[in-house]
Design a protein around this nucleic acid. Structure first.
Lengths: 327, 327
DNA sequence: CCTAAGATG
DNA sequence: CATCGTAGG
C-alpha cells in the first residue's frame, strides 16, 4: 500500500506546546442545540492543508526510524470514540484531519449506519466501513481507509459475537488491519465468561489471518496487561480489565506470535494510559488504564517506527493512539 | 395569612426592558460539569435585597387594584418546571428570588426527595412540600410557602392517582392553595380515560375543600380551554390538551363555582400562552398553549388584582404565572 | 426538542 | 460521569 501522503519528518519544525483545544471546542450553548460547537473565532482560519495541527500545538510528525533504519510510510490511528455522534460534536473529526492517518480504526461508535451524522457522511478522504451491533447504541466499530482495501471482512464468523459489531478486518497488499472492540467483562464480571469465550475465537481468527499475511490489530482490548499498565493495579485485581483471567488472556495471545508495540518500544514507561474513567476527574489526575493497543505479528514488529499515545486529545474517555510503521 | 413582605407597588419605578437573562445563564461548559451555570460577570453583584429583578429588567411589581379597590397582599406564583434539577441548573431559583411570591407552586418536578439538589435544600425563605410519583423521574409537584400552612394534604385520597404525585393542598387561615398537575391525555390520547377519571375525582376533592374555605387552584391543568387559548385550535382537536372531552371537563369544572382568573381579567387577549413545545422553535414563534391556570372559588374572584403570564422567563417549556390577590 | 431513568462502560 | 435508547411530554 503506497502512502498517499509523505511523512513530514519534522520538516516544519513544529512548536510542541500542548494546548487542550478540544476542551475549548466542546463548549456548548444550552439554548442553541443546532450549534453545539463553538469555534474559536480568535484563531484565523488557515487552509485545511496548512493544518490545524499547528494551531492545536500537537506535533503530528514522526521522524523515528525502525530497526531497519527507515522512517514510517504508513500511519495508523486507533480511537475508542465512546459514541460517534457525541464524538463528532466534540470535534473528533478535526483530530483526524490533523493526524491524517492512512487508516483510522474506531471503537464504540454506538451508531447504526442510518444514524450517522452528516459530518461523517461528508468525509471525502476515506472509504469507511462499519460493523454495528444489532443492539442500538451499543458497541460498534469502524475503519476509515485512505486507500480501498483489497477486501473487508466483518466479524469473526461467530454468530453471537458478530451480532455485537466488534471487528472489521481490512486486507491490504502486505498486511491485514483489524479494528476490534473486545467485550468488557462487565460490572461484577458478569460477562467475563463471554469475554474468555471471545478470546479463544479471536485468537483462532487472527491465527488464520496471520498464516496468510502479517496482522496489525488495532483496538480496545479491554485489558491492562500488566501492573505498569494502570495506575491502581492492587485495587483492581477483581475488576473488569485487570482480572487474572483477562491478563492471562493477553499473555496467552501474545505468546502465539504477536507483540504489543507500545510496550516493546517503551518497556519501562509508567503513567502511559489510553483510558480514564470520567468519574472523579480521573483524567486530570492521570488515574488511567492502557486498554488500547497495536498488536502486530512478530515478523513485522521491527518495522515499527513509533507508537504514540495522544493523551492530550479529548473527545472520549479513551484517547487516540497512533502507529508509525514502514511496511 | 399576613404577608411577610409589603407589595412594591412600583415604588422603585423599575425599567421594563425585557431581556432574556435565562438564556445567558444557561450556557454550560461541556468539560466542567460542576459549574454548569456561567454567571455574567460583567453585571456588578448587588445585594440580594436590591434585587435581581432590576438587573433582569422584568417588572415584578403590581399596583393593580381589585374590584374592591385594594392592591394585593398575597402573591402566588405557579410554574411547571419540567424537571426540577434541570430547572435549578437553568437558574430557576433566581426567578423565585426575584418574583418573591408568598406561595410558589411547581409541577413536573421529576425528582424524589432524596435527589433534591443542594440549591433546593439551601433555600431558607420557604417551607417546602413535595408530592412525588412512585415512578422515578415522572410527574411530581411541589409547594413553597413563606408562612407555615395550617395543614398540608398530599393527593386526592385516590390510591392510583396519588401514586403519581400530582396534588398538594396547603391550608391557610382564609383559603386553600392547591398545587396540581393534571394527567396528560398522552400521544394518541392513550391516557384520556385516566384523565377523565381524574377530572371527576378532582372536582369532588375541590368541592369538599370549597365547602370549608375558598380555594385557589394553581397548576398545569393540561388543557387549553377555548380556541383563544392556543395558536392552532383547528389542527389540535384530536390532540392531548384540546380534545372536546378535556375542554368540556374544564367547562364542567368551572360551572361548579370557579373562575379562570386570567380569562376573567383578559377575556379577549390573544397570544397569551404558558406552554410552548420545545420542537420547531415554537416559543420564539409564540406557537403555544395556555395550560397553566389560577382557578379560584367564585366568591374570591373579585379579590384578584392581577394575573400575569411571565412569558419572558425561561427555564422550562412552560413559563411562570403569578397571581396578585388581596385576601 | 426537552426531561428523566436505566443499561452499559 | 459519560454514552446511548426509551418513555413521556
Amino acid at each position: 500500500m503506497p502512502p498517499k501522503r509523505k511523512p513530514e519528518n519534522n520538516e516544519e519544525g513544529n512548536s510542541k506546546k500542548k494546548t487542550k483545544l478540544s476542551r475549548k471546542l466542546a463548549e456548548k450553548i444550552q439554548e442553541e442545540p443546532k450549534s453545539l460547537v463553538v469555534k474559536d473565532e480568535t484563531e484565523p482560519q488557515t487552509s485545511a492543508a496548512k493544518g490545524a495541527a499547528e494551531q492545536v500545538g500537537i506535533d503530528y510528525s514522526c521522524d523515528a526510524r525502525n530497526k531497519h533504519g527507515n522512517t514510517f510510510n504508513v500511519r495508523i490511528t486507533n480511537w475508542n470514540v465512546d459514541g460517534l455522534r457525541a464524538w463528532v460534536k466534540k470535534e473528533g473529526l478535526s483530530f483526524v484531519d490533523q493526524e491524517k492517518p492512512d487508516i483510522f480504526c474506531l471503537q464504540e461508535t454506538k451508531c447504526s449506519i442510518a444514524k450517522l451524522p452528516k459530518e461523517i457522511k461528508d468525509v471525502k478522504d476515506y472509504k469507511m466501513f462499519w460493523h454495528n451491533s444489532n443492539k442500538e447504541g451499543y458497541a460498534g466499530v469502524g475503519l476509515f481507509s485512505r486507500d480501498e482495501p483489497l477486501s473487508v471482512k466483518y466479524g469473526l464468523g461467530n454468530e453471537e459475537h458478530d451480532s455485537e459489531g466488534r471487528c472489521i478486518t481490512a486486507e491490504y497488499e502486505k498486511f491485514y488491519v483489524v479494528s476490534v472492540y473486545v467485550p468488557n467483562a462487565g460490572r461484577n464480571l458478569v460477562t467475563l465468561p463471554k469475554r474468555l469465550e471471545w478470546n479463544k475465537i479471536f485468537k483462532e481468527f487472527i491465527k488464520e489471518l496471520d498464516e496468510k499475511k502479517p496482522v496489525i490489530i488495532c483496538g480496545d482490548m479491554n485489558v491492562a496487561h500488566n501492573e505498569i499498565d494502570l495506575t491502581n493495579p492492587k485495587t483492581n485485581t477483581k475488576n473488569a480489565g485487570f482480572t487474572k483471567e483477562e491478563r492471562d488472556g493477553m499473555t496467552d495471545f501474545l505468546a502465539d506470535g504477536y507483540v504489543d508495540t507500545f510496550r516493546q518500544l517503551y518497556p519501562d514507561k509508567t503513567g502511559a494510559y489510553t483510558f480514564w474513567s470520567y468519574m472523579r476527574q480521573a483524567r486530570s489526575k492521570n488515574i488511567g488504564w492502557r486498554l488500547d493497543y497495536f498488536i502486530l505479528s512478530n515478523r513485522i514488529a521491527d518495522n515499527v517506527c513509533d507508537n504514540i499515545i495522544r493523551s492530550e486529545v479529548f473527545g472520549s474517555d479513551h484517547c487516540p493512539i497512533t502507529l508509525f510503521i514502514n511496511i
